[in-house]
Computed example of a mutant assay.
Amino acid sequence: MDVTECRAIVTGAASGLGRACCLGLAEAGAEVVAVDSDRKGLDSLAGDRIFVQEADVTRECEVASAVDAAFARLGRVDVLVNFAGIYRDGLLVKDIGEGDFVSMPLAQWRAVIETDLTGTFLPVRETALRMVRDGVRPGVLITVSSVSRNGNPGQGNYSAAKAGVVAFTRSVALELAPHGIRAAAIAPGFIDTPILSAMDPDRLSAQVDEIPARRLGTPAEIFAGVRFAIECEYFTGRCLEIDGGLSF
Rank of each mutant, 00 (worst) to 15 (best):
G135S: 01
V140N: 07
N150I: 12
V124K: 01
D134H: 08
M104V: 01
V132G: 06
V172G: 03
F121L: 15
D134R: 12
R170M: 12
A161P: 11
G139R: 02
G151A: 02
A167N: 15
N150P: 02
R149H: 12
N150W: 10
A173W: 05
T127K: 01
V136E: 07
L141I: 06
V140F: 09
M131V: 09
I113M: 14
S171H: 08
T127L: 06
A173I: 11
G154I: 04
T169A: 05
R110F: 09
E114V: 07
A160N: 11
V166M: 14
T143M: 07
S103P: 13
P105V: 02
Q108T: 14
P105C: 03
K162G: 05
I113D: 11
P123T: 06
N152T: 08
R125Y: 11
A167V: 14
A163P: 09
V136G: 06
S103K: 12
F121E: 07
F168S: 10
P105G: 03
L117Y: 08
V140I: 13
M104H: 06
G154N: 07
V124T: 06
V165D: 02
A167G: 14
E126G: 03
V172I: 13
E126L: 04
S146D: 07
G164Y: 02
S103A: 15
V147Y: 00
A128P: 00
S146A: 08
L129F: 09
V165G: 02
V166H: 11
D116W: 08
T120K: 05
T127F: 01
V172H: 03
L106Q: 15
P138I: 02
W109N: 00
A160Y: 04
N157W: 08
F168Q: 07
K162P: 05
G139I: 00
N152C: 04
V144T: 13
G119Y: 04
D134C: 06
F168C: 11
P123M: 07
D134I: 05
N152H: 10
L122P: 08
V166L: 11
F121M: 15
A107V: 14
G151F: 02
G139L: 01
R149L: 13
V112S: 12
T127Q: 02
W109K: 00
S145D: 10
A128C: 05
P123F: 02
S171M: 12
G135Y: 00
R137F: 09
N150Y: 13
R110C: 12
R110K: 15
Q108S: 15
T115L: 14
R170S: 10
L117W: 04
Y158M: 11
V144Q: 12
S103Y: 10
S103M: 11
L122H: 10
G119F: 04
T115Q: 14
V140W: 05
A128E: 01
V166N: 10
T127C: 06
S145T: 12
L122G: 06
A128Y: 00
T115P: 09
R170N: 10
F121V: 15
R130G: 05
V147M: 03
A128I: 02
N157H: 15
G164C: 05
G119N: 08
R137I: 11
I142C: 08
A173V: 09
S148I: 06
L129S: 10
N152G: 04
R149I: 06
N152A: 07
M131L: 10
M131Q: 08
P138F: 00
S148Q: 11
T127I: 05
M104A: 03
T115H: 12
S159A: 13
M104S: 06
Q108K: 13
A163Y: 09
G119T: 11
S159Y: 03
S159M: 09
R125N: 14
